[in-house]
Design a protein around this nucleic acid. Structure first.
Length: 573
RNA sequence: CGGGAUGUGGCGCAGUUUGGUCAGCGCGCUUGCCUUGGGAGCAAGAGGACGGGGGUUCAAGUCCCCCCAUCCCGACCA
């Protein structure tokens, strides 16, 4: 490709709208352009990257027996009503009506339609297992689209659905996808980690997320530093054995103390001279089933995802000040479990072992001393609702856990029979028994993977593409294209690389060398071959490696094989 | 959804406080000269009617109202 003909509108300045690095660089390097909030054009360079990621995914899906299909984006409401999600999905579902007034939606995911397809076409155990996938646009009207491609309203996703006779079959399909995903992200040249995760609204219990490790990641994960142990989990899901202090004190009588204007754990702890871990923190949440009080030790935080699971609710929000006052009779900051009425009380496991604890008095500017769970209040439920953090012991081996941030680029779920029952996808087994098909679903955010790759691989000059997903592998830069000898040599180099099947751009633009170098760094070609006066003289070409910044002189005769070897070894990983 | 900010040529911005040559600057773009190893220089140009609508006024990017779009933040973890 000649740069003079390539639609590669690079920008010198950072567009004001871009906050995160991947967004800035993809815009500046001319990979994407915004059309509306969370909706983008993908330009030639960007599309090449997307296609490479898609190709790797295809190969790995096919390797596991996946069959590629294509399903519609526009889907009738009836299917979503059958599964119950028309009502549950809420405002994130793009809804529309056709000219006759019939309801449709733009698919945010394809469980309904694929299950409907399979229920029609699959009737016998002989047709199972089945792995169907597609690479398709998805639509989610995000409350707040942000971070460029990271959280868009329209994005490209690979979604595969597995159909098995039973749980044992599902286990095999799930394992296949775990393997496939591991290979996909390895082949993309990304540093990533599979973690145990919460399954959220999609349902099911076993699920892993694949996280590309990057500082800017929205997700927080904890992992065991012991390689042999391997425990890793999203904090939404992570568990750790409870830490209970041994009771060394006699339980004393409850005492009311004044704590004027002390409404945070830190303030109360300092004011009363106690450790935050001796305080019972009481947080009120509102759910569709009513208000709930969650109790955790003062040095802990409530894990809302865990709490949501324990309660089995879909909606969970912290109560506002008004609601807190109504229920506790005091401003926020003074809620406590003792004498609290009209709400379900859920205590974290660690709370039950506390002795002579401090808690809010449900009275302004007052706390209670010597509160003892069991004696002074009885929680309706005791469960693990605390957030695990770095330093907590690993649930498998006890080692101190560490934290990292990640970008979720893939997730694999065991769905079970949720959708097959709702939509009536049954098969006949060899005894003539009708059974629900057991399903799994497996997604990879393709456009998000591109953004994540940039988040993880860049420097102050631009993108540093992992070789397997780089838009082109090589850029040939004549220092002065008007210099006949240089132009000719550059053309020669370009032709040879092309003839060898190498993905190469010839920067034949009538720009000064500095501009071309800057663009080469920005766009992130793994290799840059500079053709200057020296090269004309010596027939040795300067090869520069984007990742390391190192340069090397390579004779023209050996250039093609040199480049080929570099690419091959990088793609092999 | 709530809160905040912004909206002026392709990009980045100034101008709005104190209505009146305000429609401007840098980059990019076009043409010419010159230059050519890290975003050169000179010269001459093209390009916007100031997010949209409605008001106030002799006069509105500048003041008022409504709407739209974009970006950021989001519950006092009690």
């Amino acid at each position: 490709m000649r740069a003079s003909q390539l639609l590669m509108p690079t920008l010198r300045e950072v567009p004001a709208e871009a906050e995160v690095v991947s967004h800035q660089l993809l815009l500046r390097a001319g990979f994407i352009r915004k059309v509306a909030a969370g909706i983008y054009n993908i330009l030639p360079l960007g599309w090449r990257v997307v296609r490479k990621i898609m190709q790797i995914i295809r190969e790995e899906m096919d390797r596991q027996g996946g069959q590629e299909i294509m399903m519609p984006i526009v889907q009738p409401a009836e299917l979503w009503q059958e599964s119950g999600r028309w009502d549950v999905y809420g405002p994130e579902l793009f809804r529309l009506k056709d000219r006759h007034g019939r309801d449709f939606c733009l698919a945010p995911t394809h469980e309904e339609i694929v299950t409907a397809l399979v229920r029609q076409e699959v009737n016998s155990y002989r047709q199972l297992p089945l792995l169907l996938y597609q690479i398709q646009n998805k639509y989610r009207d995000e409350r707040r689209p942000r971070f460029g491609l990271m959280r868009g309203r329209e994005f490209i996703m690979k979604d595969l659905y597995s159909f098995d006779r039973d749980e044992a079959g599902l286990d095999i399909s799930y394992q296949k996808m775990f393997t496939a995903y591991t290979r996909v992200f390895q082949r993309c040249g990304l540093r990533f980690r599979p973690v145990e995760a919460d399954s959220g609204a999609i349902g099911g219990n076993v699920t892993h997320e694949f996280m590309v490790l990057a500082e800017s990641g929205e997700a927080l994960v904890v992992f065991c530093p012991r390689e042999e142990c391997g425990y890793a989990a999203n904090v939404e899901r992570a568990v750790s054995p409870p830490r209970r202090e041994e009771a060394v004190e006699e339980a004393r009588a409850v005492q009311l103390v004044s704590t004027p204007s002390m409404h945070t754990v830190t303030q109360v702890a300092a004011y009363l001279g106690v450790e935050p871990s001796r305080i019972i923190k009481t947080i009120l949440f509102q759910t569709e089933k009513g208000t709930v009080a969650a109790l955790v030790r003062g040095d802990r935080e409530v894990n809302e995802v865990k709490l949501q699971r324990v309660l089995g609710v879909l909606r969970l929000e912290m109560a506002d000040a008004e609601a807190v006052e109504e229920i506790t009779g005091a401003a926020p900051g003074y809620a406590g479990p003792v004498g609290l009425k009209g709400v379900e009380v859920v205590a974290d496991e660690e709370v039950t072992g506390m002795v002579n604890a401090v808690a809010g008095a449900n009275k302004n500017d007052a706390h209670l001393l010597n509160v003892n769970p069991g004696r002074d209040f009885a929680p309706h439920r005791v469960a693990d609702i605390r957030q695990v953090r770095a330093g907590d012991p690993c649930p498998r081996c006890g080692e101190a856990l560490q934290e990292a941030r990640g970008i979720e680029v893939g997730q694999i779920f065991k769905l079970g029979d949720k959708y097959s029952r709702a939509l009536g996808a049954y098969y006949l087994d060899e005894y003539g028994q009708s059974r629900p098909i057991i399903m799994g679903c497996y997604g990879i955010g393709v456009t998000r993977t591109m953004a994540a790759a940039v988040e993880q691989n860049h420097d102050e000059n631009g993108i540093i593409w992992p070789v397997p997903i780089a838009p082109y592998h090589v850029v040939v830069v004549p220092v002065n294209y008007r210099e006949e000898a240089q132009a000719q040599l550059a053309e020669e180099v370009y032709r040879e690389l092309l003839a060898a099947g190498i993905e190469v751009v010839l920067d034949d633009r009538p720009e000064r060398a500095g501009v071309k170098f800057k663009d080469a760094d920005l766009v992130g070609y793994p290799l840059r071959i500079t053709v200057g006066a020296r090269a004309v003289e010596t027939r040795n070409l300067e090869v520069r490696y984007r990742a390391t910044g190192e340069t090397q002189e390579v004779p023209l005769e050996g250039l093609v094989s040199h480049v080929q070897e570099f690419i091959a070894s990088a793609v092999r990983g």
